[in-house]
Design a protein around this nucleic acid. Sequence first.
DNA 1: GCGACAG
DNA 2: ATCTTGTCGC
Length: 270
Amino acid sequence: MEKEHASVKTHCSPELQNKWIEIQDSLKKSLKIEDDFSWKIPTSEVQNLEINTENLDSRAILKYVGGVDVSFSKTDPSIACATLVVLDLNTLQVVYEDFSTVQLDIPYVPGFLAFREAPVLLDLLEKMKKGSLPFYPQILMVDGNGLLHPRGFGLACHLGVLANVPTVGIGKNLHHVDGLNQSRVRQLLEAEGNLSKDVFTLIGDSGSTLGAAIRSTQDALKPIFISVGHRVSLASAIKIVKMSCRFRVPEPIRQADIRSKACLRIHGLS
DNA sequence: GCGACAG
DNA sequence: ATCTTGTCGC
């Protein structure tokens, strides 16, 4: 009888984890956490109309927002469907979608999600770019964290750096990091005077700003967790996320998730 | 040292 | 991530 724990703790060799940590630390040197893009974020409807006399700003307006997600087969947990969608920010309609069904042998290890999911997502992005396909995303929303990560380099950062595209991390659950945990977030949201607030900056014990918890919809009790991925500031990331929310989960991520699962069904998995 | 821990 | 029923909302 092996000395296997009855629990389902995920772990892999310390050697591999050390190697992964080196890669994260190395890639992190290329990380940019301020706005680094040529377009401008749309503000009010009025300003987008050309009746505005201040036409000195010739930058393009953000229009194409991407979203990526990976779903897994319940029958064979190693089979995954990775999905890339691009939405028109004005209509929140999908203008592009692509899938890749693959076998993933690398396990999910907290803190190392990128080593499992980034490769296939990168393939989808590179395929779109090399094919000169239209609607290549000006910014990409990723199902996972960015700076809100044990070493400040989650999947959103990882993908952003390798694809050299602006990214924002979207977590549906809090990754406990730097002293941040559910009870502290709960305490933030329920604090007197914060009942009507919808954005809560997340500052760790170290004093650094790791991201923000936001109530994306009025009726959403449970927040989502936004963090900087690459080439975008937290303030800009929050603005863009707010513009893409019809429901709690921002539409690019939500559509990627829905279509990813539909893709598995069509292929007889599910 | 042990537990907690995005998807 | 995935396993699941009913239920509420648009």
